[in-house]
Amino acid sequence: MRLQEFWGQLRDQFGDVRGEAIARDHVFSAFDGRTAVGAIENGVPVRTVWLAICEEFDVPAQAR
């Protein structure tokens, strides 16, 4: 998954404002207390971050 796809999926699933907030403000225990953006900046694969968001926010399997 590319970063552009990641942002597109976030917008599609959560809307512009909420998707942005989830990525930049929500702290994930899966990333040792980092945000999704922080995890990506620290080298966590984008797909891994997307799947963690899906798990945390109960995104349906067909949207993952």
Results as ranks from 00 to 15, higher is better:
residue 3 L to Y: 08
residue 55 E to Y: 00
residue 29 S to H: 09
residue 49 V to M: 03
residue 11 R to G: 13
residue 50 W to L: 13
residue 32 D to K: 11
residue 26 H to P: 11
residue 10 L to S: 04
residue 26 H to E: 13
residue 30 A to K: 09
residue 3 L to A: 08
residue 28 F to D: 11
residue 12 D to H: 12
residue 6 F to N: 09
residue 17 V to L: 15
residue 36 A to V: 10
residue 28 F to P: 11
residue 42 N to W: 02
residue 18 R to N: 06
residue 22 I to V: 14
residue 3 L to T: 03
residue 24 R to P: 00
residue 20 E to I: 08
residue 6 F to Y: 14
residue 19 G to M: 06
residue 20 E to K: 06
residue 5 E to M: 10
residue 52 A to R: 02
residue 24 R to E: 05
residue 6 F to P: 12
residue 41 E to Q: 05
residue 3 L to M: 09
residue 16 D to Q: 09
residue 13 Q to I: 15
residue 35 T to F: 01
residue 47 R to H: 00
residue 32 D to F: 09
residue 55 E to P: 05
residue 63 A to Q: 12
residue 25 D to H: 06
residue 41 E to T: 04
residue 40 I to Q: 08
residue 37 V to K: 13
residue 50 W to D: 12
residue 12 D to P: 05
residue 26 H to K: 10
residue 1 M to S: 06
residue 25 D to R: 04
residue 4 Q to K: 13
residue 19 G to T: 02
residue 18 R to W: 00
residue 13 Q to E: 08
residue 1 M to V: 12
residue 51 L to R: 08
residue 56 E to H: 05
residue 20 E to S: 15
residue 63 A to C: 15
residue 34 R to H: 02
residue 37 V to I: 15
residue 42 N to V: 04
residue 25 D to N: 14
residue 7 W to L: 15
residue 24 R to W: 00
residue 14 F to S: 11
residue 12 D to K: 13
residue 48 T to Q: 14
residue 11 R to K: 09
residue 44 V to H: 07
residue 18 R to M: 13
residue 62 Q to C: 11
residue 60 P to H: 00
residue 8 G to E: 07
residue 48 T to V: 11
residue 64 R to E: 02
residue 8 G to L: 15
residue 8 G to H: 10
residue 18 R to S: 10
residue 52 A to C: 06
residue 33 G to C: 08
residue 55 E to S: 13
residue 49 V to P: 04
residue 54 C to I: 07
residue 47 R to Q: 08
residue 35 T to L: 10
residue 6 F to L: 14
residue 20 E to M: 11
residue 29 S to G: 06
residue 50 W to T: 07
residue 26 H to F: 08
residue 64 R to H: 02
residue 56 E to L: 09
residue 40 I to D: 07
residue 41 E to P: 01
residue 7 W to G: 10
residue 36 A to Q: 01
residue 59 V to W: 00
residue 21 A to W: 01
residue 58 D to F: 01
residue 56 E to G: 08
residue 1 M to P: 09
residue 6 F to V: 04
residue 40 I to V: 13
residue 2 R to G: 14
residue 45 P to A: 06
residue 34 R to C: 14
residue 56 E to C: 10
residue 59 V to Y: 03
residue 20 E to C: 14
residue 30 A to D: 07
residue 64 R to C: 11
residue 10 L to F: 04
residue 51 L to F: 05
residue 34 R to D: 09
residue 64 R to L: 10
residue 5 E to D: 15
residue 15 G to H: 01
residue 6 F to R: 06
residue 1 M to Q: 04
residue 3 L to V: 10
residue 55 E to Q: 13
residue 50 W to P: 11
residue 19 G to Y: 00
residue 43 G to P: 06
residue 54 C to A: 15
residue 30 A to I: 03
residue 16 D to W: 00
residue 49 V to S: 03
residue 20 E to H: 07
residue 25 D to V: 03
residue 10 L to K: 03
residue 2 R to L: 15
residue 26 H to L: 15
residue 14 F to K: 12
residue 26 H to Y: 08
